[in-house]
Protein backbone atom coordinates (compact mmCIF):
# COMPACT_ATOMS: atom_id res chain seq x y z
CA UNK A 1 0.00 0.00 0.00
CA UNK A 2 1.49 3.35 -0.99
CA UNK A 3 1.89 6.08 1.61
CA UNK A 4 -0.35 8.46 -0.29
CA UNK A 5 -3.10 7.11 -2.47
CA UNK A 6 -5.31 9.53 -4.36
CA UNK A 7 -8.14 7.97 -6.33
CA UNK A 8 -10.44 9.72 -8.79
CA UNK A 9 -10.46 12.89 -6.71
CA UNK A 10 -13.04 15.51 -7.69
CA UNK A 11 -13.00 18.85 -5.90
CA UNK A 12 -15.28 21.83 -6.24
CA UNK A 13 -15.69 25.26 -4.76
CA UNK A 14 -18.99 27.08 -5.08
CA UNK A 15 -20.31 25.10 -8.05
CA UNK A 16 -17.04 25.19 -9.95
CA UNK A 17 -15.24 21.92 -10.37
CA UNK A 18 -11.51 22.42 -10.01
CA UNK A 19 -10.17 18.87 -9.79
CA UNK A 20 -11.85 16.46 -12.17
CA UNK A 21 -10.59 13.03 -11.25
CA UNK A 22 -7.02 12.97 -10.00
CA UNK A 23 -5.18 9.72 -9.41
CA UNK A 24 -1.79 9.69 -7.78
CA UNK A 25 0.23 7.29 -5.64
CA UNK A 26 3.33 8.33 -3.76
CA UNK A 27 5.50 6.21 -1.54
CA UNK A 28 8.33 6.75 0.90
CA UNK A 29 11.58 7.68 -0.79
CA UNK A 30 9.85 9.08 -3.86
CA UNK A 31 9.82 12.62 -5.15
CA UNK A 32 6.80 13.54 -7.24
CA UNK A 33 6.66 16.79 -9.12
CA UNK A 34 3.31 18.16 -10.22
CA UNK A 35 3.57 20.76 -12.95
CA UNK A 36 0.82 22.67 -14.57
CA UNK A 37 -0.27 26.04 -15.84
CA UNK A 38 -2.09 28.60 -13.69
CA UNK A 39 -5.59 27.45 -12.82
CA UNK A 40 -4.89 23.81 -13.56
CA UNK A 41 -5.77 22.87 -9.97
CA UNK A 42 -2.33 21.92 -8.69
CA UNK A 43 -2.38 24.32 -5.73
CA UNK A 44 -5.94 23.29 -4.94
CA UNK A 45 -4.71 19.72 -4.64
CA UNK A 46 -2.05 20.84 -2.14
CA UNK A 47 -4.59 22.76 -0.08
CA UNK A 48 -7.03 19.89 -0.02
CA UNK A 49 -4.29 17.52 1.12
CA UNK A 50 -3.35 19.94 3.90
CA UNK A 51 -6.98 20.22 5.03
CA UNK A 52 -8.40 23.54 3.91
CA UNK A 53 -12.11 23.41 4.52
CA UNK A 54 -13.59 25.64 1.83
CA UNK A 55 -13.23 22.96 -0.84
CA UNK A 56 -15.82 20.31 -1.35
CA UNK A 57 -14.85 16.77 -2.21
CA UNK A 58 -17.52 15.61 -4.63
CA UNK A 59 -16.04 12.27 -5.58
CA UNK A 60 -13.05 10.04 -4.97
CA UNK A 61 -10.79 9.41 -2.00
CA UNK A 62 -7.43 10.15 -0.47
CA UNK A 63 -5.72 7.62 1.76
CA UNK A 64 -2.65 8.31 3.79
CA UNK A 65 -0.93 5.36 5.36
CA UNK A 66 -4.14 3.46 4.80
CA UNK A 67 -6.29 6.02 6.65
CA UNK A 68 -8.92 8.27 5.10
CA UNK A 69 -7.02 11.55 4.99
CA UNK A 70 -10.08 13.62 4.11
CA UNK A 71 -11.73 12.67 7.39
CA UNK A 72 -8.89 14.15 9.40
CA UNK A 73 -8.66 17.70 10.80
CA UNK A 74 -5.81 19.83 9.55
CA UNK A 75 -3.85 19.50 12.79
CA UNK A 76 -4.41 15.74 12.86
CA UNK A 77 -2.88 15.44 9.42
CA UNK A 78 0.14 17.42 10.54
CA UNK A 79 0.44 15.29 13.64
CA UNK A 80 0.30 12.15 11.51
CA UNK A 81 3.17 13.43 9.41
CA UNK A 82 1.66 15.42 6.55
CA UNK A 83 3.43 18.73 6.02
CA UNK A 84 2.70 21.53 3.61
CA UNK A 85 5.11 24.31 2.75
CA UNK A 86 2.78 27.22 1.93
CA UNK A 87 2.95 29.20 -1.26
CA UNK A 88 2.15 32.32 0.79
CA UNK A 89 3.30 31.71 4.38
CA UNK A 90 1.18 33.67 6.85
CA UNK A 91 2.73 36.31 9.09
CA UNK A 92 1.98 35.78 12.76
CA UNK A 93 2.84 39.00 14.61
CA UNK A 94 3.51 38.40 18.28
CA UNK A 95 3.86 34.62 17.90
CA UNK A 96 7.52 33.85 18.45
CA UNK A 97 9.06 31.17 16.26
CA UNK A 98 10.53 29.46 19.29
CA UNK A 99 7.22 29.07 21.08
CA UNK A 100 5.42 28.23 17.92
CA UNK A 101 7.85 25.47 16.96
CA UNK A 102 8.06 24.11 20.48
CA UNK A 103 4.27 23.74 20.46
CA UNK A 104 4.23 22.39 16.97
CA UNK A 105 7.08 19.89 17.31
CA UNK A 106 5.73 18.59 20.59
CA UNK A 107 2.17 18.29 19.30
CA UNK A 108 3.48 16.16 16.46
CA UNK A 109 5.78 14.13 18.71
CA UNK A 110 3.02 13.53 21.23
CA UNK A 111 0.66 12.25 18.54
CA UNK A 112 3.37 9.90 17.34
CA UNK A 113 3.99 8.58 20.82
CA UNK A 114 7.38 10.22 21.14
CA UNK A 115 8.65 12.00 24.19
CA UNK A 116 8.40 15.76 24.52
CA UNK A 117 11.58 17.46 23.45
CA UNK A 118 13.53 19.03 26.31
CA UNK A 119 14.64 22.65 26.16
CA UNK A 120 18.28 21.85 25.44
CA UNK A 121 17.48 19.30 22.76
CA UNK A 122 15.04 21.70 21.20
CA UNK A 123 17.59 24.49 20.97
CA UNK A 124 20.10 22.08 19.50
CA UNK A 125 17.58 20.95 16.93
CA UNK A 126 16.71 24.54 15.98
CA UNK A 127 20.38 25.25 15.42
CA UNK A 128 20.95 22.14 13.30
CA UNK A 129 17.87 22.52 11.18
CA UNK A 130 18.21 26.24 10.59
CA UNK A 131 21.73 25.56 9.33
CA UNK A 132 20.27 23.18 6.84
CA UNK A 133 18.51 25.99 5.00
CA UNK A 134 21.03 28.63 5.92
CA UNK A 135 18.40 30.48 7.93
CA UNK A 136 19.76 33.35 9.99
CA UNK A 137 19.42 32.21 13.58
CA UNK A 138 18.05 35.62 14.48
CA UNK A 139 14.99 34.75 12.41
CA UNK A 140 14.30 31.75 14.61
CA UNK A 141 13.82 34.18 17.48
CA UNK A 142 11.47 36.61 15.79
CA UNK A 143 7.73 36.42 15.28
CA UNK A 144 6.76 33.82 12.70
CA UNK A 145 7.35 35.21 9.21
CA UNK A 146 6.80 38.77 10.37
CA UNK A 147 8.89 41.14 8.34
CA UNK A 148 10.64 38.26 6.57
CA UNK A 149 11.62 38.75 2.94
CA UNK A 150 10.01 36.51 0.34
CA UNK A 151 13.06 34.26 0.25
CA UNK A 152 13.31 34.11 4.03
CA UNK A 153 9.69 33.03 4.27
CA UNK A 154 10.25 30.16 1.86
CA UNK A 155 13.41 29.05 3.62
CA UNK A 156 11.52 29.26 6.88
CA UNK A 157 8.96 26.82 5.47
CA UNK A 158 11.71 24.30 4.70
CA UNK A 159 13.12 24.92 8.15
CA UNK A 160 9.72 23.99 9.62
CA UNK A 161 9.74 20.91 7.40
CA UNK A 162 13.08 19.91 8.82
CA UNK A 163 11.87 20.49 12.37
CA UNK A 164 8.66 18.49 12.01
CA UNK A 165 10.21 15.55 10.13
CA UNK A 166 7.05 14.59 8.22
CA UNK A 167 6.49 11.43 6.22
CA UNK A 168 4.74 13.30 3.45
CA UNK A 169 5.98 16.75 2.50
CA UNK A 170 4.01 18.86 0.05
CA UNK A 171 5.75 21.91 -1.36
CA UNK A 172 3.29 24.36 -2.87
CA UNK A 173 5.17 26.53 -5.38
CA UNK A 174 7.99 26.95 -2.93
CA UNK A 175 10.19 28.10 -5.81
CA UNK A 176 8.00 31.00 -6.89
CA UNK A 177 9.55 34.38 -6.30
CA UNK A 178 12.98 33.00 -5.41
CA UNK A 179 16.18 34.16 -7.01
CA UNK A 180 18.65 31.55 -8.13
CA UNK A 181 20.70 31.58 -4.92
CA UNK A 182 17.68 31.22 -2.70
CA UNK A 183 16.36 28.51 -4.97
CA UNK A 184 19.56 26.56 -4.60
CA UNK A 185 19.50 26.88 -0.83
CA UNK A 186 15.91 25.66 -0.65
CA UNK A 187 16.68 22.77 -3.00
CA UNK A 188 19.77 21.78 -1.02
CA UNK A 189 17.68 21.72 2.10
CA UNK A 190 15.09 19.50 0.48
CA UNK A 191 17.74 17.14 -0.93
CA UNK A 192 19.25 16.69 2.50
CA UNK A 193 15.83 15.83 3.85
CA UNK A 194 15.17 13.14 1.29
CA UNK A 195 15.18 9.68 2.74
CA UNK A 196 13.67 6.32 2.12
CA UNK A 197 10.71 6.86 4.44
CA UNK A 198 9.71 10.29 3.26
CA UNK A 199 7.65 11.18 0.21
CA UNK A 200 7.76 14.57 -1.45
CA UNK A 201 5.07 16.13 -3.59
CA UNK A 202 6.51 19.22 -5.22
CA UNK A 203 4.09 21.55 -6.94
CA UNK A 204 5.69 23.95 -9.32
CA UNK A 205 5.09 26.10 -12.30
CA UNK A 206 8.61 25.92 -13.64
CA UNK A 207 11.05 23.25 -14.42
CA UNK A 208 14.04 25.11 -12.98
CA UNK A 209 13.48 23.86 -9.40
CA UNK A 210 13.68 20.34 -10.81
CA UNK A 211 17.19 21.07 -12.02
CA UNK A 212 18.13 21.04 -8.37
CA UNK A 213 15.70 18.51 -6.94
CA UNK A 214 15.65 15.50 -9.16
CA UNK A 215 12.14 14.05 -9.23
CA UNK A 216 11.34 10.36 -9.66
CA UNK A 217 8.04 11.17 -11.31
CA UNK A 218 6.71 14.21 -13.11
CA UNK A 219 2.97 14.69 -13.46
CA UNK A 220 1.53 17.22 -15.85
CA UNK A 221 -1.70 18.65 -14.55
CA UNK A 222 -4.09 20.24 -17.01
CA UNK A 223 -7.70 21.24 -16.41
CA UNK A 224 -7.96 19.47 -13.09
CA UNK A 225 -6.56 16.15 -14.25
CA UNK A 226 -3.18 14.52 -14.49
CA UNK A 227 -2.79 14.48 -18.23
CA UNK A 228 0.54 12.77 -18.42
CA UNK A 229 3.04 11.16 -16.09
CA UNK A 230 6.68 10.60 -16.90
CA UNK A 231 10.17 10.86 -15.55
CA UNK A 232 12.23 14.01 -15.23
CA UNK A 233 12.47 14.37 -18.99
CA UNK A 234 8.78 15.21 -19.04
CA UNK A 235 9.53 18.37 -17.07
CA UNK A 236 11.94 19.51 -19.75
CA UNK A 237 9.44 18.71 -22.41
CA UNK A 238 6.71 20.66 -20.63
CA UNK A 239 8.98 23.62 -20.26
CA UNK A 240 9.67 23.60 -23.95
CA UNK A 241 6.28 22.77 -25.33
CA UNK A 242 3.88 24.16 -22.76
CA UNK A 243 0.71 22.33 -21.85
CA UNK A 244 -1.57 22.96 -24.81
CA UNK A 245 -0.70 19.67 -26.44
CA UNK A 246 -1.92 17.82 -23.37
CA UNK A 247 -5.35 19.35 -23.10
CA UNK A 248 -8.45 17.86 -24.65
CA UNK A 249 -7.91 14.11 -24.21
CA UNK A 250 -4.53 13.85 -25.84
CA UNK A 251 -5.58 15.11 -29.26
CA UNK A 252 -3.92 18.39 -28.58
CA UNK A 253 -1.10 18.14 -31.03
CA UNK A 254 -3.19 19.73 -33.73
CA UNK A 255 -4.24 22.52 -31.36
CA UNK A 256 -0.69 23.28 -30.37
CA UNK A 257 0.25 23.54 -33.99
CA UNK A 258 -2.34 26.24 -34.48
CA UNK A 259 0.24 28.61 -33.19
CA UNK A 260 -0.46 28.93 -29.49
CA UNK A 261 2.74 29.79 -27.77
CA UNK A 262 3.06 28.25 -24.36
CA UNK A 263 1.03 29.98 -21.66
CA UNK A 264 3.89 30.48 -19.33
CA UNK A 265 5.83 32.52 -21.72
CA UNK A 266 8.33 30.00 -23.05
CA UNK A 267 8.80 30.87 -26.68
CA UNK A 268 7.58 27.62 -28.17
CA UNK A 269 7.55 27.88 -31.90
CA UNK A 270 4.53 26.35 -33.60
CA UNK A 271 6.79 24.28 -35.80
CA UNK A 272 8.57 22.72 -32.88
CA UNK A 273 5.30 21.81 -31.26
CA UNK A 274 4.07 20.27 -34.45
CA UNK A 275 7.23 18.27 -34.87
CA UNK A 276 6.88 16.82 -31.41
Amino acid sequence: MPLLEIEDLHIGIEDTEILRGVDLNADGGEVHAIMGPNGSGKSTLAKVLAGREEYEVTQGSVHYDGEDLLEMEAEERAQEGVFMAFQYPVELPGVSQQNFLKESVNAVREAQGKEELGAADFIKMVREKSDLVDLDEALTKRSVNEGFSGGEKKRNEIFHLAMLEPRLAILDETDSGLDIDALRIVADGVNQLRDSDRAFVIITHYQRLLNYIEPDYVHAMVDGQIAKTGDKSLAVELEERGYEWLSGDGVAESKASEGNASENGAATEPEEAAVA
Binding site: A74, E75, A78, F86, V90, P93, G94, A107
Partner: peptide, 28 residues
Protein backbone atom coordinates in the same frame (compact mmCIF):
# COMPACT_ATOMS: atom_id res chain seq x y z
CA UNK B 1 -8.65 32.31 9.68
CA UNK B 2 -5.53 31.91 7.53
CA UNK B 3 -3.34 32.26 10.58
CA UNK B 4 -5.37 29.64 12.45
CA UNK B 5 -5.05 27.27 9.50
CA UNK B 6 -1.32 27.83 9.31
CA UNK B 7 -0.94 26.87 12.97
CA UNK B 8 -3.20 23.86 12.57
CA UNK B 9 -1.30 22.64 9.56
CA UNK B 10 1.75 22.59 11.79
CA UNK B 11 -0.03 20.20 14.12
CA UNK B 12 -1.39 22.68 16.66
CA UNK B 13 -5.04 22.02 17.58
CA UNK B 14 -7.57 24.68 16.64
CA UNK B 15 -8.41 25.77 20.20
CA UNK B 16 -4.79 26.08 21.07
CA UNK B 17 -4.08 27.95 17.86
CA UNK B 18 -6.75 30.52 18.81
CA UNK B 19 -5.28 30.88 22.26
CA UNK B 20 -1.80 31.39 20.87
CA UNK B 21 -2.99 34.02 18.45
CA UNK B 22 -4.89 35.91 21.15
CA UNK B 23 -1.82 35.85 23.36
CA UNK B 24 0.25 37.07 20.44
CA UNK B 25 -2.26 39.86 19.82
CA UNK B 26 -1.83 41.15 23.37
CA UNK B 27 1.88 40.65 23.33
CA UNK B 28 3.18 44.03 22.21
Amino acid sequence: EDAIFYLRSRGIPAERARAMLLGAFARD
